[in-house]
C-alpha cells in the first residue's frame, strides 16, 4: 500500500495511529464516558459524526481563508464550526432520544472540547490531503475512536466485577487499562509498511 492510497489513509487513522491510543487525542471522554457499553457506543458515534462534519468544513474553510490570505484565522474558524456542529448533534439527540441525552450528560456539549475533532481538522491540513482523502481520514479517525471507546468500556465493565485494591479504583485503573490497550495497538505499527 502506498502512503496516499485511500485504504492506507483509513487504516492509518483508525488503527496504526489510533487517535486515542497512539496520539493521545480525546482522552477526556474515554475516561469519562467509558463506564458502560450502552453509553460508550452512542458517544463514539456522535463524536465520529462531528468529526466528519469538522473535516469537510475544515477543507472548505482552508479554501476560503487561503483565497483571502487569512490563514491565521483558521484555528478560530475551525473551532466555531465544531461548536455549531456539536450544538446540532445535541439538539438532535435531545429530540430523538431523551434518555440517551440524560445518560451522556455534560459530556455531550463537551464534544466541542474533544481534541480528537480539532485534531482531525489540524492534521488533515498539515498532511495537505485533498477532499476525498480528508473524507477517508476523518472516517478512519471516527472508526478508531469508536473502537477505542467500546474496547475501554468492555474492559471497564469486566474490571467492575474484579477484586481491585481500593487505591487503584477509578481513574488510575482506567489509565492502566488504556496503557495495556495502547501496548496492544503498538503491534499494528508495522501494518501497511
Amino acid at each position: 500500500m502506498s502512503a496516499d492510497s485511500l485504504s492506507y489513509i483509513f487504516l492509518n487513522a483508525a488503527i496504526i495511529n489510533n487517535f486515542v491510543l497512539a496520539l493521545f487525542l480525546g482522552i477526556c471522554p474515554i475516561l469519562g464516558v467509558s463506564g458502560k457499553l450502552s453509553t460508550a457506543f452512542p458517544m463514539g458515534v456522535a463524536t465520529a459524526f462531528v468529526m466528519l462534519i469538522a473535516s469537510v468544513s475544515a477543507w472548505l474553510i482552508n479554501i476560503i481563508l487561503n483565497h483571502f490570505g487569512l490563514e491565521f484565522l483558521s484555528l478560530i474558524a475551525y473551532i466555531a464550526v465544531i461548536a455549531s456542529a456539536v450544538q446540532l448533534v445535541e439538539m438532535t439527540v435531545k429530540k430523538f432520544s431523551p434518555p440517551l441525552y440524560r445518560a451522556l450528560g455534560i459530556f455531550l456539549p463537551l464534544i466541542t472540547s474533544n481534541c480528537a475533532i480539532l485534531g482531525v481538522a489540524l492534521f488533515q491540513t498539515s498532511y495537505e490531503y485533498d477532499f476525498v482523502q480528508s473524507l477517508f481520514y476523518s472516517l478512519g479517525a471516527g472508526a478508531g475512536f469508536i473502537l477505542a471507546i467500546v474496547l475501554m468500556a468492555g474492559l471497564r465493565e469486566r474490571v467492575d466485577l474484579a477484586d481491585v485494591p481500593s487505591i487503584a479504583r477509578g481513574a488510575a485503573m482506567s489509565l492502566m487499562l488504556a496503557g495495556v490497550l495502547s501496548l496492544a495497538f503498538m503491534g499494528f505499527s508495522g501494518l501497511g509498511g
Partner: peptide, 12 residues
Amino acid sequence: PPGGFFVLGGWL
C-alpha cells in the same frame, strides 16, 4: 504512548 498512560496511572 503506553508509557504515558502507565506513568500517569502510577502517579495517581
